[in-house]
Design a protein around this nucleic acid. Structure first.
Lengths: 215, 215
DNA sequence: ACCTAACTGATAACTATTACTAAATCAAGC
DNA sequence: GCTTGATTTAGTAATAGTTATCAGTTAGGT
């Protein structure tokens, strides 16, 4: 026998496909841990490696510190937002001829290529346009992470550890902070784009939020 | 005052430019240490960072574990050899129009792009063609590093620590191995492409060789 | 010559990933 | 269904590359 079907492996693949984002091992670990609290980070790494070997997912190696994984395997390229580090797919037309992924270049036998664009995602562009009087706002120079207070970070972290949307009371309980204080923090974080409210009175952490607290 | 001119900084820049390769911080550290034995690895990192901020050199972020630095800053792309991890420059014609480095893609404001090709360098292609009977040969699957014996590694390391070409006797002295044995090792390593002989009877480590012992 | 911000070497700390271990688990064959 | 053994797991240690810290040194303006 060779490759087995384990519940861990199944959930990892499933959650990566469900997210439709380019998650890092760490981000995926957090998501998967919601469904399987005792799973180990090492297991996530092992399975991502194995799944990418079998071709079920793609290992990205985009720029930045961490490796990312993609559930879409068909040929496409990527854009990285230089501010929030979000990575998205790009399908470019009429590129294949001029930017070949096979052939010979300078004596090298080309087996593949990688194309990555850098820029500002629509969300960050909008964020940067906000008048600078707002003290809780990111400064537009990519240092938003550093501007989070410890309490804001606590709130974000608690929200990240929740699976699905939660109310302010949940966060107050998880962080030990006063409920009124938490409500204020959430409002600030929402303005900064780190938190959104999918349902009225319920809140969830955004991809930006995750980026802001870790990686 | 802001940025000072220090001898460390000068040598780092000078050696990177002289090498005309895409060195890792570690590789450059070894080269620089020949001229300035007490320099610290942290200083190398610090200055590479600073030099790339001022635009004098380029920080690469090609795929692979280590970051590499390039003394050529003008727009060009890179090829990475999937076997020996050598990185070289590529200047593609007629690419600018179809593979733009500025503009708007899917709502992102593009500030730059990175294009990396993967393939086999001419040297590795040639290496792979050698009949497989040769036991000292790399297996062509990228695992050449693991096939080095401890003694071969010692020889390579000693050669790396030498600045410029050296004779077998130097290596024997540095490693403590018998001179006759060293001669044999050098011959093997030369066949594998880890050592070359710029001058008759003098030997030097190649980029492949450096890769083979570290990163 | 003096002063001080910028810099250095040495080393600890950190982050992302991989390796290792004993224990648990899947699935093939009875 | 039970046995069996290779695969996989959780937990943790180890590693590689890089960054941070810090006390002492130095460049370069005054």
């Amino acid at each position: 026998m060779s490759v087995r079907r384990t519940s861990q492996r199944e959930i990892i693949l499933q959650e990566l496909q469900k997210s439709r984002q380019h998650l890092t091992a760490d981000q995926l670990f957090r998501v998967v841990r919601k469904k399987m609290p005792r799973i180990s980070l090492a297991t996530v790494y092992r399975n991502l490696e194995l799944l990418s070997e079998t071709g079920l997912i793609a290992k990205l190696e985009v720029s930045g510190r961490q490796r990312r994984f993609d559930s879409e395997v068909v040929g496409h390229d990527h854009v990285t937002c230089v501010q929030c580090h979000r990575v998205e797919n790009v399908f470019l037309e009429g590129m294949k001829e001029d930017c070949p992924s096979h052939g010979v270049v300078d004596g090298y036998t080309i087996k593949g290529r990688r194309l990555e664009f850098f820029g500002l995602c629509p969300r960050c562009q909008k964020k940067n346009k906000v008048p600078k009087g707002d003290a809780t706002m990111g400064c537009g120079c990519g240092c938003a992470k550093k501007m989070l207070t410890d309490e804001q970070k606590m709130v974000l972290q608690a929200m990240a550890d929740f699976h699905g949307p939660c109310v302010a009371k949940d966060i107050a309980a998880a962080t030990g902070l006063e409920a009124k204080l938490v409500t204020g923090k959430i409002a600030d974080l929402k303005k900064q784009g780190f938190v959104d409210s999918p349902v009225r009175c319920k809140y969830g952490i955004t991809a930006d939020g995750r980026t802001a607290i870790k990686g």
